[in-house]
Amino acid sequence: MGAMIGLSAITERYRRSEQSLLNRLEISDRTLRWLFMLPSIVVLAFISIVPLVRAVWMSLHDWNLTSGKGAFVGFGNYETLLFGNPEFFRFEFDPSQPFEFVLSGSVVHQAVYTGLSVSIEVVLGIALAMYLFSLSERWQPIVRTIFVLPMLVTPIATALMWRLMIDGSIGVINYMLQFVGISPPAWTSSPVMAMLTVVIVDVWQWTPLVILIVFAGLLSIPESRYEAARVDGAPRWAIFRHVTLPGIKYMIAIALVFRLMRSFREFPLIEIVTSHGPGTATQIMNIQLYRTVFVGTGDAGLGAALGIVLIVVTVGICMSIVRRVGMMQ
């Protein structure tokens, strides 16, 4: 109520002011909404649609960067990519030997990499955000500052830093592991470990983003809801399940969408740490795209097709999350 009165006083002052230019501008809401929307729409369309249309156009042509533009091939590049490209997807299964199958390709690596890193980040992020929330006022600001730091490091630096730390000959992590009697793993030279390594680096860099977003969500849950639950004598897990979780649902969804968007186009964290190896064990779709276009003769048509597939997958998954939690309303 007090705020309302204060507010009227302010507006009153402005209303009387002859200086106010805004006061003399009579713009209808119909016009205003487009005045507000158009600059952003125009700018984003300018930067994103023009190259995107061009990329679609490229994907429909047999276009090699070294030997030049070729013929229109329709969906030929997509066909090659989806059905004839073992680097993209490979599944070999012999029913007589059900335990010896081959499942690989950048789609599979992408699923493992994104699935693993994003779920660890979300779980760890929620846990650490709740931990942060539970701290006293003395510690909270300090720990909060620390918890945000990894997010501030430019990803290419993160990748190089980790490369230094896990280096086989001068790496500090190997030294510490040996110090406590653990023999260091083959960080980047066994297919499984290499994938875990890039996941670890990704988790280090991006868990803070999840913490920051979820922490904001925790702050926004009214204390009264907790009190009500406590009065009812609800056990802790029930409070988490029925009060906390619903309260941070939107925030988790946002964190998830941001992380997924980023994870689908991750580049330096992987290419610098493992150079997509061993073999192609850590080659995700974006890196296959990079290698298709930039390494070798440069099949821009196939690369563009891969880019479009990647966009469709990202948009599809993110849209389903956004729709599900009703972020759009």
């Binding site: 995107l52 968007m261 186009r265 966009i311």
Partner: peptide, 8 residues
Amino acid sequence: RMAPPLAI
């Protein structure tokens, strides 16, 4: 923001 920069 979802388009991978390398694609465009």
